[in-house]
Each structure stands twice: as structure tokens, then as C-alpha cells.
Simulated assay, not measured.
Amino acid sequence: MSLKIRLARGGSKKRPYYQIVIADARAPRDGRFLEKVGSWNPMLGKDNEKRIELNAERLKHWIDNGAQPTDRVLRFMAEAGLAERPARSNPEKAKPGKRAVERAAERKQKADAAAAAAAE
């Protein structure tokens, strides 16, 4: 049985609240889970200590037993010092798209033409 440490959404519409749970990977997102090991309230400020609550002892237990955290939960655990999250690097993501490059070239061409006309 493959176990995941993941978020289960609660709260009302446009007021999210998440529980950090241990669940079977095949179970639905908000469905059956084995144990609740924390919570995340994104409505609270980032400096509020109640925004993310983790039960470190139980998280360590489940990781030792083979549970795999999702990316978001792994971020929370890395912030708490419970896990190591590898740094990601995607240099292609920062590059402008094809249309943006075309628009920039067009603007540069118009600016050069205007500068040449003003110089004459």
C-alpha cells in the first residue's frame, strides 16, 4: 500500500483550510485517511505561527514507514527543518515567449526609426 502525506481541503467556499493527512495514494483528496498530522490555514498571515501546524514526531514515524510527502507538504516540512527539499532550477521558464520577443523587436525597430527621423 502506497502512502502519501498530503493536503485534504476543508473550509467553506473561498475560505480554504487544509488538514495534512496520511492517506492511501488511491484514496480521494478529501476522502478516507489514516491519520491527521497537521494543518495549514492559508487565510492567516505568513508571520502567524498557527498558519502551519505539524506534528513532527508522527511525520518522522510515517516517513520512516515509507510515506511520500507531496511537493507542498515537503515545502512545509523543509521550512520546519524536518526534511530536505532539493532546489529546483528551470532557466527556460524565465525566458520570454515567442510573441513577447517579436513585440520587443518591433518596439526597438520603431524606436530606431523614430531616432533616425529625428536625427535628419
Rank of each mutant, 00 (worst) to 15 (best):
Arg88Gly: 15
Gly45Lys: 07
Ala80Ser: 05
Arg103Pro: 08
Asn48Lys: 03
Phe33Leu: 05
Lys36Arg: 13
Asp24Phe: 01
Arg88Phe: 15
Ala105Leu: 15
Asp71Lys: 11
Pro42Tyr: 05
Ile52Trp: 05
Lys95Pro: 12
Phe76Trp: 09
Arg29Asn: 11
Ala83Gln: 08
Lys98Asp: 10
Glu84Thr: 12
Tyr17Cys: 08
Arg26Ile: 03
Leu7Trp: 08
Asp30Pro: 00
Lys95Glu: 13
Lys95His: 12
Ser12Ala: 15
Glu35Ser: 08
Ala111Lys: 07
Arg75Pro: 01
Asn90Thr: 03
Gly10Met: 12
Ala104Cys: 09
Gly38Trp: 04
Asn41Tyr: 09
Arg51Glu: 03
Glu92Val: 14
Val21Thr: 02
Leu7Ser: 01
Ala27Arg: 09
Glu84Ile: 13
Pro69Arg: 08
Leu54Ala: 08
Pro96Asn: 02
Ser89Trp: 07
Asp30Glu: 00
His61Lys: 10
Ala94Lys: 12
Ala27Trp: 02
Asp47Ile: 04
Glu35Cys: 02
Val101Tyr: 14
Arg99Thr: 12
Arg32His: 15
Lys93Gln: 15
Arg107Ile: 12
Tyr17Val: 10
Val21Tyr: 00
Tyr18Val: 09
Ile20Ser: 04
Tyr18Pro: 10
Thr70His: 00
Arg103Val: 09
Phe76Ser: 05
Met43Val: 13
Gln68Tyr: 05
Ala56Ser: 09
Ala78Gly: 01
Asp71Met: 08
Pro28Met: 03
Phe76Lys: 08
Arg51Leu: 00
Ala27Ser: 06
Asp24Tyr: 03
Ala67Gln: 02
Arg107Tyr: 11
Pro69Gln: 06
Tyr18Ile: 04
Pro16Lys: 01
Gly11Asn: 07
Lys98Glu: 13
Gly11Tyr: 06
Ala83Lys: 11
Asp64Arg: 11
Tyr17Gly: 02
Lys46Pro: 10
Pro42Thr: 02
Ile63Trp: 06
His61Gly: 05
Val101Gln: 15
Lys98Phe: 13
Ala27Met: 03
Phe33Val: 05
Arg51Pro: 05
Lys93Ser: 09
Gln19Lys: 14
Asn65Arg: 07
Leu74Ser: 08
Arg29Leu: 07
Gln109Ala: 15
Lys36Pro: 04
Glu53Arg: 12
Phe33His: 11
Lys108Ala: 09
Val73Phe: 00
Ser89His: 13
Trp40Phe: 06
Leu34Pro: 02
Ile22Pro: 00
Lys14Cys: 12
Ile52Val: 13
Arg58His: 04
Met43Arg: 13
Ala104Glu: 11
Met43Pro: 11
Glu92Met: 14
Glu106Ala: 14
Val101Leu: 15
Ala25Trp: 00
Ala87Met: 04
Arg29Phe: 01
Gly97Arg: 01
Ala87Cys: 02
Asp64Glu: 13
Arg75Cys: 15
Ala105Phe: 14
Trp40Cys: 12
Ala23Gln: 02
Leu74Val: 06
Asp24Ala: 04
Glu92Lys: 14
Asp47Trp: 02
Ala94His: 13
Arg99Tyr: 14
Ala83Cys: 04
Val101Glu: 14
Glu106Tyr: 12
Glu106Val: 14
Ala25Leu: 07
Met43Gln: 14
Gly66Arg: 00
Val101Trp: 14
Glu35Leu: 10
Pro86Phe: 05
